[in-house]
């Protein structure tokens, strides 16, 4: 220990240098390669088109924003207010339908989708069912709401219901996956105790699993509602309902003041839902 440098001296550096492992190197190369090639592609595609920030674009931006939030926007006529109010109500209804349908469907599927016990003769039915349920969650989750809307609109006519169903399908996957994971991660002991005291599957599910996750599920639902409402307003694009649809119409007609009004309504809804959701979740804590 005679050679230990004093704290006030500059400590000499070690001569051996630690080299990064092969895996990290490989990952780094692949990642950089991916990012570079993607940027290259985008760059190639952008040739000849105007850049984001230029004299021209900032001029246009100023023009558009002027029209979006100009004097015309702020003059709300009575009929316009009523129209917007109806759109807001439609949008909220759509989000409620979506949330409720998704939650109920998940609730029904949860006993199958959570791998709580795989012993016994029911194994041959349970495991394929489990895989099917999980697979369904992943599949419905992978496709975004608007793409589901394209398909749903074909079967059901455009409208609030179609939009709600499209939202529900995607969120079914999101909530289902999270819910099943939570049930699986939860304490098994109380459930085992319930079952050994003679409760049937259904009983142990209702009295054991449900209260366990009900509170979490509810708070998560309110949290998720924030996300859903933002997408609901946009789903209307395809499903021809709510704010989204009107937005599309007005945008195509370049009626910017109207678009501005809808945007304001949209942001207000999002903030209102945000606030409600936060308050409810805090009350639940």
């Amino acid at each position: 220990m005679r050679d230990l440098p004093r704290s006030t001296e500059r400590s000499p550096y070690a001569t051996t240098v630690k080299l990064p492992g092969l895996f990290s190197l490989l990952t780094a190369v692949v990642t950089v390669g991916l990012i570079v090639s993607c940027w290259g592609f985008i760059f190639a595609e952008s040739q000849g088109k105007s850049p984001l920030i230029s004299g021209e674009t900032s001029e246009r931006a100023r023009l558009i924003f002027g029209q979006l939030f100009g004097s015309e926007t702020w003059s709300f006529t009575g009929s316009r207010v009523r129209e917007i109010a109806r759109l807001v109500a439609d949008t909220l209804a759509m989000s409620a339908i979506a949330a409720a349908m998704a939650a109920i469907s998940v609730f029904v599927l949860l006993p199958v989708a959570a791998r709580t016990n795989t012993e016994g003769s029911s194994r041959f039915i349970r495991i394929p069912l489990y895989l099917a349920a999980r697979g369904l969650f992943i599949f419905t989750r992978a496709v975004p709401e608007l793409l589901w809307a394209l398909v749903v609109v074909f079967v059901l006519s455009p409208g609030i219901f179609a939009g709600g169903v499209a939202l529900a399908i995607h969120n079914f996957g999101v909530i289902g996956r999270l819910g099943a994971d939570t049930v699986e991660d939860a304490e098994q002991a109380p459930l085992v105790a319930l079952r050994s005291s003679g409760a049937s599957e259904a009983q142990s599910y209702l009295s054991g699993v449900v209260p366990l996750i009900a509170r979490q599920l509810l708070t998560f639902m309110f949290y998720r509602w924030e996300v859903i409402i933002r997408t609901t307003a946009v789903v209307g694009f395809v499903a021809a309902s709510g704010i989204g649809y009107q937005l599309r119409v007005d945008m195509n007609l370049f009626r910017y003041p109207e678009v501005g009004q809808l945007l304001i309504a949209y942001v207000l809804i999002v903030w209102a839902v945000d606030l409600t959701s936060t308050l409810v979740r805090r009350a639940f804590k």
């Binding site: 109500a89 209804a93 759509m94 339908i97 409720a100 059901l156 006519s157 409208g159 709600g164």
Partner: peptide
């Protein structure tokens, strides 16, 4: 919640 929102739906046109 569910049934309330369903009131908003224009049911006549649904079944395509």
């Amino acid at each position: 919640l569910l049934f309330g929102s369903l009131l908003f739906v224009d049911w006549r046109h649904i079944p395509n």
